[in-house]
């Protein structure tokens, strides 16, 4: 009998004693030297994919040893993070590529959840009091977190003063606007992990009059291994420069046909859609970008207009086809992974 995810969840909970073991399905990790990339959420765009959707908002965990850098924090990201067995105490930083719902829906709650997690000792001299979570994103990231702290002031105060959380919330959560230039620049170093950022807004989009969010790309490196993460509206040349020499490029791409349909359903005008479309990175363009950067592996993620899990089979082959069409010649094309939904459906 085929088992859908819902049945799976019910039966998992029903056999609760075996639950942890049963829930411990290995995530579809993509090895990249000593960096491990886990696609927690692969759905981009403002929508949620409709009822029954099993993709959650964009979120990518890059692991090195016990340290984790999270890129993107769309809805459901923290749920998936926990399902993947990554507790928030392992987070060294949370990064967002742009201030859109698919990157930020869970971001403030991540700050709150990571802060609240097992730190109620009231002792300013304890190791717990030294915890910090850098939160980096384009201009407006800091304002987002500060507005959230004002919104939750009473709750935060209750947890700090009455429930003895350490350190104070604003000491723990360290939002910072990255006003990077087009050239990649180091923005964070924690132990052996280094994060560089570059501003990737496509000049074409600015001239077209569309409101395109400020967009950053990140390059996360440890030792000789590096992963580049490129948002969906990236200036191609800048993205190539950021990704050059990385083992793996994770690129958010737009399913143009699906995204146009979604935009029409939301009432966007023809002119608005045309202007937006000029900024979208297609799978073929992503392939080109990864090949020029010399990356060994290209991962298509952040599937704008990502389909329901049930519709997933047609999506991956289509992306593969688009990718092959662009790169027919031997040796010109990096290995391709199309992001799967996590967790994978149970058969």
């Amino acid at each position: 009998m085929p088992m859908d995810r819902r049945t799976f969840l019910r039966s998992t909970a029903a056999t609760a004693a075996a639950g942890i073991a049963a829930g411990h399905l290995p995530p579809p990790a993509l090895a990249a030297g000593r960096l491990r990339v886990v696609l927690l959420g692969t759905l981009a765009g403002d929508g949620l994919g409709g009822a029954g959707n099993e993709r959650t908002g964009t979120a990518i965990a890059v692991e090195h040893g016990g340290d984790v850098v999270l890129v993107g924090c769309g809805f459901g990201s923290i749920r998936r993070l926990l399902e993947a067995g990554i507790e928030t105490s392992r987070l060294r930083a949370a990064l967002v590529t742009r201030l859109t719902f698919d990157q930020t829906a869970d971001l403030a709650s991540l700050a709150m959840g990571a802060w609240s997690n097992g730190s109620n000792n009231g002792d300013p001299a304890s190791p717990a009091a030294r915890r910090r979570l850098p939160i980096l994103g384009p201009a407006g990231t800091q304002a987002h977190l500060l507005a959230y702290a004002r919104q939750e002031a009473l709750t935060i105060d209750d947890q700090y003063r009455v429930l003895k959380q350490v350190p104070a919330f604003d000491v723990f959560a360290r939002p910072r606007d990255v006003t990077a230039s087009a050239v990649r620049r180091r923005v964070l170093r924690d132990g052996t992990v280094e994060v560089a950022a570059a501003r990737l807004v496509d000049p074409r989009s600015v001239s077209s009059g569309v409101v395109v969010p400020e967009a950053l790309g990140y390059r996360i490196a440890a030792g000789s291994s590096a992963v580049a993460i490129i948002g969906p509206c990236a200036h191609r040349d800048r993205a190539v420069a950021l990704a050059r020499g990385a083992d793996t490029v994770v690129c958010e791409v737009v399913d143009v046909e699906g995204a146009r349909r979604a935009a029409r359903a939301l009432g966007s005008s023809r002119a608005q859609i045309a202007a937006m479309q000029r900024t979208w990175t297609t799978p073929a363009e992503a392939a080109d970008l990864a090949a020029r950067a010399g990356a060994g592996t290209l991962v298509l993620a952040g599937l704008v207009a990502g389909r329901r899990a049930g519709h997933r089979p047609p999506l991956a082959p289509r992306y593969r086809r688009l990718h092959r069409t662009r790169h027919r010649g031997p040796g010109s094309s990096p290995r391709l992974n199309v992001a799967a939904a996590w967790p994978p459906p149970v058969r």
Partner: peptide
Amino acid sequence: DVHRVATDRAVAHATR
């Protein structure tokens, strides 16, 4: 206020 940037952008893209 918390979601100003994201909602402003979304308003610019569709009648909402």
